[in-house]
């Protein structure tokens, strides 16, 4: 029993709070989440150099966890998806979207279909999809759930589980592709960037599965910063963070997101996402 007491004492010694003035950020790329720490530590180094404060990357698994970390001030800056950004800015007053990827101003979702459906690429979703099986990506993904559900409701005037015989949530874009390719689900909705990357790398058999419809464009991923950043890190800190992001031009850093560049963004751009999320009952 003695070692229990000794270990408990050691534990108490180590149980001290982390330094308070480190600037922390988190990011979840929409594809390839391997070696997160290694890749984003480089981004942290870049920001550290530009901002003159200690910068640390906090790896998180889900957008829900990212929003919670942001709300609890465990991270001050986050690379959010469209919906998670809106959730976060609602929970943290004065926080604001400061930059988005060049690709995010006009993001799209592809509807994909297994070859057995014999559906072809068209200007709108064919009526024939009714009664087929369908899978979204993760439940809180903007491109894998929110916007595709919105356009489905617009097209058919019904909830997805009334349109389709079966509705699943694959949990991830890559999985949506895998499940539709295997014919487990006949249809799926997938982030266009993930699909394009998978096709380019030959990771998907386009004889088995193909795009049948592309949604209109909508805003997606963005950097969101807490409102009290200037107060805590010095006057003009927010502007310096934004400048550092907009001027990031090293492809090795940008590839982690993966984006070609960052462009300015503001909260108002995401109003459409907020409206749709409220309409679908994902926000209140």
């Amino acid at each position: 029993m003695r070692w229990i007491a000794a270990s408990a004492a050691a534990l108490a010694l180590l149980a001290q709070g982390a330094a308070a003035d480190t600037f922390r950020f988190t990011a979840i790329p929409d594809e390839d989440q391997s070696r997160l720490v290694e890749r984003f530590s480089k981004v942290a180094d870049y920001l550290e150099e530009r901002l003159d404060v200690e910068v640390e990357y906090v790896p998180v698994k889900s957008y829900g966890a990212a929003v919670t970390a942001f709300r609890n001030d465990q991270v001050q800056l986050a690379w959010f998806g469209g919906l998670s950004g809106v959730q976060a800015r609602r929970l943290v007053p004065d926080s604001r979207a400061i930059a988005q990827g060049a690709e995010d101003a006009a993001f799209e979702t592809y509807f994909i279909a297994h070859r057995s459906t014999r559906l072809e690429d068209g200007d709108q979703l064919p009526d024939a999809v009714e009664g087929m099986s369908f899978t979204f990506g993760s439940k809180t993904s903007t491109s894998g759930r929110l916007m595709p559900e919105h356009y489905l409701r617009q097209r058919f005037g019904e909830a997805p589980d009334e349109i389709f015989s079966r509705v699943g949530f694959s949990g991830d874009h890559s999985r949506t592709i895998a499940l539709v390719e295997a014919g487990t689900y006949e249809l799926g909705a997938v982030n266009y960037a993930v699909w394009d990357a998978a096709v380019e790398d030959g990771r998907v058999d386009t004889d088995q599965v193909q795009v049948i419809w592309t949604t209109p464009s909508y805003p997606d991923y963005q950097w969101t910063l807490r409102g009290d950043a200037d107060e805590r890190y010095g006057e003009g800190f927010s502007d310096r963070v934004r400048a550092a992001l907009l001027e990031m031009d090293d492809p090795a850093l940008l590839d982690s997101f993966p984006r070609s560049a960052f462009i300015p963004a503001d909260n108002a751009m995401y109003a459409p996402i907020e409206d749709v999320a409220e309409e679908l009952g994902l926000l209140r």
């Binding site: 297994h114 057995s116 895998a178 390719e181 295997a182 014919g183 487990t184 088995q208």
Partner: peptide, 9 residues
């Protein structure tokens, strides 16, 4: 049971 071609994956 709905199977088509799971074998690739």
């Amino acid at each position: 049971v709905v199977t088509r071609d799971p074998w690739t994956e």
